[in-house]
Amino acid sequence: MTEKLFYEDAYRKEFDARVLSCRPVPEKGYEVVLDRTAFFPEGGGQYGDVGEISGVRVSDTQEKDGDVIHYTSEPLQEGAAVTGKIDWEIRFSRMQQHTAEHILSGLAHSIFGYQNVGFHLSDEICTMDFSGPVTKEEMEEIEKRANEAVYKNIEVNVLCPSREELKNFEYRSKIEIEGQVRIIQIPGYDTCACCAPHLKRTGEIGQIKVIGLMNYKGGVRVTMVSGNRALCDHEKREKDMKEISKLLSAKEWELPEAVQKLKDDMERQKSEVLSLQRKLITYKAAEVPAGQKLACLFEKDLDGTGIRELMNQVLENHVTVCGVFLQKGEGWQYVVGSREKDVREIGKKLNERFHGRGGGKPEMIQGSLQGRPEDIKSFFEETVNG
């Protein structure tokens, strides 16, 4: 079994080792096993470390039957002495997120009795799923208390109690653990079984920021960033605010009112557009002679609701069949209706002839097709008259 140096010192960045085996694997390069490693394999919701071994890129790290598998871009000679170097910036960021997750999950457990039933730590965000509901205000209070733990700079303890000691040991755990149980303890905030590397002190987290809260499977899913990720999130939000402020010609503290005014203006304009469209539809429908057998209209200035309304108004003038075709890019959105005939066969023939798709009820069909307007009009008239 590989000697796991990351358990001895989570801050170890480089190490010397010997290659025990190396074999090619499809699409992943090579599987390399060393006699000792500081690369943490994927586990506990945290991705495996990346870095390099003697200049060869390590893209992922997994564990199989006690051996740590390093996936490399090039082969390494079995028996060779090598030097490993983990990507410390990525590892440290993951330790920040993971330690912060323990604090948030511990608080949710102590306050509400909820379990963390899902955890995922990527290189962009960290998500955790709690087993019960949490309001926005309650989450804000948890976030505040979590950051208090950061400011206190509490020592993070790693405990490996015996099976006998575990009988009277209270800790959180999502799964039944075989073998040695490794406990991460943040006094006053969390005690949880976990296999991943963590920070030495909570102050190294820097800041904990909850950026998302949504209902999920009877509980909530919390999205969080901490450390440098939190700083980057703040910087992006500040940049976005400045850009929005510039676009709206408003001070940053005036943005809520400016956005509300913009929303009100858009609603008013939308109402005006709808009123004008109704008038336009009435004029267009009046241009179709009443009582004729069919009408085939091609439009550009209406929307999907508008062409249905136009069709209905034309049919009210005792036109037997009406088809309205709205230009959409290089194709057409269509609606065909009748108060007297089953128009589904007309739609079927249109779709077959012009590579279309759609359907509906006997009195109305809708869909989309491709073709020149003169060809569509000619075919439509032939189909209806035929």
Rank of each mutant, 00 (worst) to 15 (best):
V314K: 13
H109G: 00
G219A: 02
S131H: 09
E345Y: 14
E309V: 08
A196S: 10
E164M: 02
K239Q: 12
A196M: 01
I90P: 00
K251T: 12
E340S: 11
N317F: 10
N147M: 00
L247Q: 15
E14V: 08
T72C: 14
R172N: 12
Y7R: 00
K349T: 09
G359F: 13
P289L: 10
N385I: 04
L255Y: 06
T191P: 07
G212M: 12
Q97W: 08
K144R: 15
A146S: 08
R18I: 11
D303P: 00
C160G: 02
A196V: 04
D16V: 00
R372H: 02
M139A: 04
E14M: 02
E272P: 00
E330Y: 10
E155P: 08
L231P: 15
S59L: 11
N116I: 00
G79P: 07
R357W: 05
P133G: 07
N157H: 12
W332A: 00
V150I: 06
F92H: 13
L107E: 10
Q269I: 06
D49Y: 14
L104Q: 00
A285K: 01
I205Q: 13
K174G: 11
G304M: 11
D87M: 05
R172V: 06
I184E: 06
A286Q: 05
K174H: 08
D233H: 15
I177V: 08
G79H: 06
G356F: 05
I86Y: 05
S122R: 05
I208T: 11
I53P: 13
V56D: 05
G179Q: 02
G44M: 01
I175A: 08
F325V: 01
G203V: 10
E340G: 01
L262Q: 13
S122T: 12
K200L: 10
L350P: 03
I142P: 04
G132C: 07
M364E: 15
S245H: 12
V314L: 06
V384I: 14
V220K: 04
I307L: 14
K200I: 08
K361R: 15
K174Y: 03
H120L: 10
E143C: 07
L274C: 03
I307D: 11
C232F: 09
R57W: 05
V222A: 05
N317Q: 11
Q207A: 13
H98N: 10
A295F: 02
E257H: 09
S226H: 03
F112H: 12
L199F: 08
E170D: 03
D67N: 14
V384F: 03
G219P: 01
G337V: 09
K236C: 12
R94S: 06
A193I: 02
E101H: 08
K246F: 11
L310R: 08
L166S: 02
E204M: 14
Y47R: 15
S105F: 05
I177D: 01
K239M: 09
Q62P: 15
G118Q: 09
G113E: 04
N385R: 14
C296K: 00
V32F: 14
K144G: 07
K217Q: 14
T320K: 07
Y283G: 04
